[in-house]
Amino acid sequence: KYLVLALYDYQEKSPREVTMKKGDILTLLNSTNKDWWKVEVNGRQGFVPAAYVKYL
């Protein structure tokens, strides 16, 4: 498993997404889509914009 760092705040806009705050450390679950990565944060799984996170 990889960890990624939230570069920006992101507010979920659909039930498939998750909210994150700048500085959050997220567990990367799937990065096959170049635009949306599946992550786990605070016990929830969902998608965030790939451009908003970077590998640690």
Results as ranks from 00 to 15, higher is better:
Ala51Phe: 09
Lys38Asp: 04
Lys13Thr: 13
Val39Trp: 00
Asn30Arg: 06
Arg44Gln: 09
Val18Phe: 13
Arg44Phe: 07
Leu28Lys: 01
Gly23Thr: 02
Gly43Phe: 06
Thr27Val: 15
Arg16Asp: 13
Met20Thr: 04
Ala50Phe: 02
Arg44Leu: 08
Pro49Ala: 02
Val39His: 00
Ile25Ala: 04
Lys21Asp: 04
Leu5Ala: 06
Val39Ser: 00
Val4Trp: 08
Phe47Ile: 07
Leu7Cys: 07
Leu26Arg: 00
Trp36Ala: 02
Gly23Ile: 01
Lys38Arg: 10
Trp36Asn: 02
Lys38His: 12
Lys54Asp: 08
Asp24Trp: 10
Tyr52Phe: 14
Ala50His: 03
Val18Leu: 15
Tyr10Ile: 01
Glu17Trp: 04
Lys34Arg: 11
Lys21Glu: 07
Lys34Trp: 07
Asn30Ile: 08
Leu29His: 06
Thr32His: 12
Met20Ala: 02
Ala50Arg: 11
Leu5Tyr: 12
Ser14Ala: 09
Val18Met: 11
Tyr55Arg: 14
Val53Gln: 00
Val41Arg: 14
Lys22Asp: 02
Thr32Met: 12
Ala6Leu: 03
Gly43Tyr: 05
Pro49His: 02
Lys1Cys: 10
Leu29Asn: 02
Met20His: 01
Trp37Gln: 01
Tyr8Phe: 14
Tyr10Gly: 01
Val48Asn: 00
Ala50Glu: 03
Val53Ser: 00
Asn42Gln: 09
Phe47Trp: 13
Leu3Trp: 11
Lys13Leu: 09
Tyr8Leu: 12
Leu5Cys: 09
Phe47Leu: 08
Leu5Ser: 06
Glu12Gly: 15
Tyr8Glu: 14
Asp24Leu: 04
Tyr10Phe: 08
Val18Tyr: 04
Trp36Asp: 01
Tyr2Gly: 15
Gln11Lys: 12
Val48Ala: 03
Leu7Asn: 04
Lys1Ser: 12
Met20Arg: 00
Lys34Cys: 08
Gln45Lys: 12
Arg16Lys: 14
Ala50Tyr: 03
Asp9Val: 02
Val18Thr: 07
Val41Leu: 15
Asp9Phe: 02
Leu26Gln: 01
Leu26Asp: 00
Leu28Tyr: 02
Thr19Glu: 04
Lys21Trp: 09
Lys34Val: 11
Arg44Ala: 08
Arg44Cys: 05
Ile25Thr: 07
Gln11Asp: 13
Val4Asp: 00
Gly46Leu: 04
Lys38Cys: 09
Val53Arg: 00
Asn33Lys: 06
Gln11Arg: 10
Leu56Ala: 10
Lys21Pro: 00
Tyr8Gly: 06
Val48Cys: 04
Arg44Thr: 07
Lys34Asn: 12
Thr19Arg: 05
Thr27Leu: 13
Lys13Ala: 12
Arg44Val: 10
Asp9Arg: 03
Glu17Phe: 06
Val53Thr: 04
Val18Gly: 02
Tyr10Cys: 02
Val48Ile: 11
Val53His: 00
Leu26Thr: 01
Gly46Asp: 01
Glu17Asn: 05
Tyr8Val: 12
Leu3Glu: 08
Leu26Lys: 00
Val53Asn: 00
Val39Ile: 08
Asp35Glu: 14
Leu7Ile: 11
Asp9Gly: 06
Leu3Phe: 14
Lys1Tyr: 13
Gly43Met: 06
Ala51His: 15
Lys34Glu: 11
Lys21Arg: 14
Ser14Phe: 06
Glu12Lys: 13
Pro15Glu: 13
Leu29Lys: 05
Leu3Arg: 11
Ala51Glu: 12
Leu29Gly: 02
Lys38Tyr: 15
Leu56Tyr: 14
Ala50Asn: 03
Val18Asp: 00
Pro15Thr: 09
Gln11Phe: 14
Trp37Pro: 03
Thr32Pro: 05
Pro49Trp: 03
Pro15Ile: 09
Leu5Arg: 08
Tyr8Trp: 11
Leu29Ile: 15
Lys38Trp: 15
Tyr8Ser: 10
Lys38Phe: 15
Tyr10Leu: 01
Phe47Gly: 01
Lys54Met: 15
Tyr55Ser: 12
Asn30Gly: 07
Ala51Gln: 12
Tyr55Trp: 12
Gly43Cys: 08
Gln45Thr: 14
Val18His: 03
Glu17Ile: 03
Asn42Thr: 07
Lys21His: 11
Leu3Gly: 04
Glu40Asn: 06
Tyr2Trp: 13
Gln11Gly: 07
Tyr52Leu: 13
Glu17Leu: 05
Pro15Ser: 12
Ala50Gly: 05
Leu29Trp: 06
Ala50Cys: 06
Leu3Met: 12
Gln45Ser: 11
Leu56Lys: 06
Lys22Gln: 12
Leu7His: 04
Arg44Met: 09
Tyr2Phe: 13
Trp37Tyr: 11
Pro15Gly: 10
Ile25Leu: 10
Pro49Phe: 02
Lys38Gln: 13
Gly43Pro: 01
Ser31Phe: 11
Lys13Tyr: 04
Leu26Phe: 06
Gln45Tyr: 09
Ser14Ile: 05
Lys38Thr: 08
Asp35Ile: 15
Ala51Tyr: 10
Met20Leu: 09
Tyr8Gln: 14
Lys38Val: 14
Ala6Asn: 01
Val48Arg: 00
Leu5Pro: 01
Pro49Ser: 02
Leu7Phe: 04
Ile25Tyr: 07
Gln45Cys: 09
Met20Asp: 00
Lys34His: 12
Asp35Ala: 12
Thr32Val: 12
Leu5Glu: 15
Leu3Lys: 12
Ala6Glu: 01
Gly46Pro: 00
Gly23Cys: 06
Lys1Asn: 13
Val39Arg: 00
Gln11Asn: 14
Lys34Leu: 10
Trp36Cys: 06
Ala6Trp: 03
Trp36Val: 03
Trp37Leu: 07
Asn33His: 13
Leu7Pro: 00
Trp37Cys: 06
Val39Met: 02
Val48His: 00
Leu29Tyr: 05
Val39Phe: 00
Ile25Pro: 02
Glu12Thr: 08
Asp35Lys: 15
Arg16Gln: 12
Gly43Arg: 05
Tyr10Ala: 00
Gly23Arg: 02
Asp24Met: 11
Trp36Glu: 04
Lys21Leu: 08
Gly23Lys: 02
Asn33Arg: 10
Gly46Thr: 02
Ile25Lys: 06
Gly23Tyr: 05
Gln11Ala: 12
Asp35Met: 12
Tyr10Lys: 01
Thr27Asn: 11
Tyr10Glu: 01
Val4Cys: 10
Trp37Arg: 02
Tyr2Asp: 13
Arg16Ile: 14
Ser31His: 09
Gly23Met: 03
Val53Cys: 11
Ser14Thr: 14
Leu29Val: 13
Asn33Ala: 09
Lys54Arg: 12
Ser31Thr: 10
Thr32Asn: 14
Val39Lys: 01
Lys13Asp: 07
Val18Arg: 01
Asn33Glu: 11
Ala6Ser: 06
Ser14Glu: 10
Leu3Ala: 07
Lys54Tyr: 10
Pro49Cys: 03
Pro49Met: 03
Asn33Ser: 11
Ser31Lys: 14
Asp24Tyr: 04
Tyr2His: 15
Val41Tyr: 12
Arg16Glu: 15
Pro49Lys: 03
Gly46Lys: 02
Pro49Leu: 04
Leu56Val: 13
Ile25Ser: 03
Tyr55Asp: 10
Leu26Trp: 02
Tyr10Asp: 00
Trp37Asn: 02
Lys34Ile: 10
Lys22Leu: 05
Lys34Pro: 13
Glu17Lys: 04
Leu5Val: 15
Val41Asn: 13
Lys1Leu: 12
Leu5Lys: 09
Leu5Met: 14
Asp24Glu: 12
Gly23Gln: 03
Thr27His: 11
Lys22Ile: 06
Glu17Val: 05
Tyr55Met: 15
Leu26Pro: 01
Leu28Glu: 00
Val53Leu: 15
Asn30Ser: 13
Asn33Ile: 05
Val18Gln: 03
Ser31Met: 14
Asp24Val: 04
Arg44Ile: 09
Gln45Ile: 15
Val41Gln: 11
Val53Trp: 01
Met20Glu: 00
Asn30Leu: 08
Val53Phe: 04
Ala51Met: 11
Leu29Ala: 04
Trp36Thr: 02
Lys34Ala: 13
Ser31Tyr: 09
Val18Glu: 01
Val39Gly: 00
Asp24His: 05
Tyr52Gly: 07
Lys54Thr: 14
Leu3Val: 09
Pro15Trp: 08
Asn42Ser: 11
Pro15Asp: 14
Asp24Phe: 04
Lys21Ser: 10
Ile25Asn: 03
Glu12Cys: 09
Val48Phe: 00
Lys21Asn: 10
Ala51Pro: 09
